[in-house]
Simulated assay, not measured.
Amino acid sequence: MGCYIQNYMDRDPGPGAQDFTCGPLAYDGHKGTDFALPDDSIMALGVPVLASAPGTVTGIRNSMPDIRFSDPGAPPLEGRDCGNGVVLDHGDGWESQYCHMKQGSVSVSLGQQVATGAPLGLVGLSGRTEFPHVHISIRKDGETLDPFAPLATSCAGAPSGESLWADPLEYQAGGLISLGFSDAVPEYAAIKAGTAARETLPTEAPALVLWGHAFGPRAGDVLQITITAPDGSLFHQSEASFERTQAQAFRASGRRAQGLAEGLYTGQLRLIRAGKTLSEATTTLPVRR
């Protein structure tokens, strides 16, 4: 699974938050688009942030640590909510800003001219953030514009035909971020770190559990969890509900075992909203003696 859009620009003029489709994938006052990575392990591999258009580098920060804002060890932001980042001037009043980049990864210098697609640095976890991502803001004459609906003055209830993206991006109203097998319900911190999924399990494992991590689940959504045994028979199936709308959440289910059959187990997740499958994913796990 690759990157996904966790938050869009807030189009609600009041204290609430709505994305450009009037959906909940935004938070109050958010002025950009958040392209997120599935977990910290992907961030550690090094995912480049690219210039959205040709321009001149007019701002840089590169020294803030990669640490979640809620972590007790996180330093005070002191107005540096963007974390490490880059500002580009595209001329004629247009600017783009890239935030939360990885410490020490910014690879451009002030005054440098960059082309479309030029690497600026790497996706990180710096500043006011709880997940690895790059926040991109677009401004015209100092005014922030929503690249998905730049001409709209509020949410429209459906994607607009207007867009600033060279290649239109499909709106995702929520979906699966990652999934995996374990021998117990994992800690949420392990899921976010990318260390929760087991590559294999022994036949004497005490249980077989399938977990799924989702973004944008809404109240009433259901995660269908299915595990198929090596011989093709149904090992376990359940449905886990979401009681409230959240930015991210995980659910897990499985079965205790008194000895697992050797072979390849298949796990399937389906995120269901209003009776329709919004997102689905499959994974496998070898069980060995």
Score class of each variant (00 low, 15 high):
Ser160Phe: 00
Pro217Ser: 13
Glu78Ile: 00
Gly175Pro: 13
Glu243Leu: 12
Pro75Asn: 05
Ser182Lys: 10
Thr116Lys: 13
Thr144Phe: 09
Gly121Phe: 09
Glu239Leu: 04
Leu210Asp: 14
Arg244Ser: 15
Pro76Trp: 05
Ala219Asp: 12
Gly232Met: 08
Cys99Ser: 06
Leu234Pro: 06
His213Arg: 12
Leu45Ser: 09
Ile225Trp: 04
Ala184Ile: 02
Ala214Asn: 14
Gly55Gln: 13
Pro202Ser: 14
Thr284His: 10
Thr277Arg: 06
Ala196His: 09
Ser41Tyr: 01
Ser109Pro: 00
Pro24Arg: 12
Gly232Phe: 08
Asp12Leu: 08
Ser178Ala: 15
Phe35Met: 10
Val87Ala: 03
Pro15Asp: 09
Leu88Asp: 11
Thr203Val: 11
Leu77Trp: 01
Thr21Ala: 03
Pro186Phe: 10
His135Tyr: 01
Ile5His: 08
Pro38Ser: 09
Asp39Thr: 09
Ile60Phe: 08
Pro159Ile: 01
Gln172Gly: 15
Gly32Arg: 06
Val114Cys: 14
Leu37His: 05
Pro168Asp: 05
Pro48Trp: 00
Ala205Tyr: 11
Thr56Pro: 04
Pro76Ala: 06
Thr226Gly: 01
Ala53Ser: 13
Asp92Gly: 00
Ala184Pro: 02
Ala247Met: 09
Gly275Val: 02
Ile177Ala: 12
Gln113Ala: 14
Gln237Leu: 01
Asp39Lys: 09
Gly121Tyr: 10
Ser52Thr: 15
Ala257Gly: 03
Phe242Ser: 06
Lys102Ala: 09
Ala118His: 15
Gly212Phe: 15
Gly23Val: 08
Phe148Tyr: 15
Ile42Val: 15
Gly79Asn: 07
Pro119Gln: 11
Pro48Thr: 00
Thr245Cys: 06
Ala281Thr: 01
Pro13Met: 02
Phe35Asn: 03
Ser52Phe: 04
Val123Tyr: 06
Pro72Lys: 04
Val287Asp: 07
Leu151Ala: 11
His236Pro: 02
Ile227Trp: 03
Ala247Cys: 00
Gly232Asn: 07
Phe20Lys: 02
Glu170Lys: 11
Ser41Gly: 05
Ala51Trp: 07
Gly157Pro: 04
Thr33Gly: 04
Pro72Gln: 05
Glu143Asn: 03
Val134Asp: 02
Leu50Tyr: 04
Pro76Phe: 05
Ala205Thr: 11
Leu45Asn: 06
Ile136Asn: 01
Gly121Pro: 09
Phe235Glu: 04
Met101Ser: 00
Gly104Met: 04
